[in-house]
Amino acid sequence: MAARLSAVRVARQLTSTASRRPSFLPSPCTQRAAVPLQRRLFTVSAAAKEKKYTEDHEWIDVSADGKTATLGISDYAAKALGDVVYIELPQVDMDVNAGDAIGAVESVKSASDILTPISGKVTEVNSALEEKPAGINKDPEGEGWIAKVQIEGEPEGKLMSKEEYTAFTEDA
């Protein structure tokens, strides 16, 4: 599982054209998600509608109609990374699969990937971060959001409430 996800991640990191893969070459992810995808297109269960956090320190905030998710990195992650000098944003209209790297952050000679816990199509990116990457340190869970995704399917992987996430980071 981990190996497969990381392989997909790398492919995405490497080339933006990966998202425009011809349909005769489906990734294992899309194959597996095909059935629930048809049934649940553009809906997400109510439980996911409060702001949630991943173990990779991203947050996801689903809009009231359940169609759009806003993604970003947590306060904890922004503090741990230190001064961010560059943020690689995804491209608008890019199709992403849950678990993919949709961008990257660089701080103090360190590169780290930004992963999406949800599949869908990127509809908007926070271009202000391209001009001022340090903005993500100021308000990572607000003005420093990274991308908006038109949701397809349910989020994947463990999602935590604010309280659960706080406990998770205190354990680490």
Binding site: V10, L14, T15, S16, E88
Partner: peptide
Amino acid sequence: PEIKKGYDELRTKDWMWSQTPQ
């Protein structure tokens, strides 16, 4: 295979040139 995959990716033109920030 995993090493070969990473190796091939590092050698693509996309990674070398198009990964360049704006």
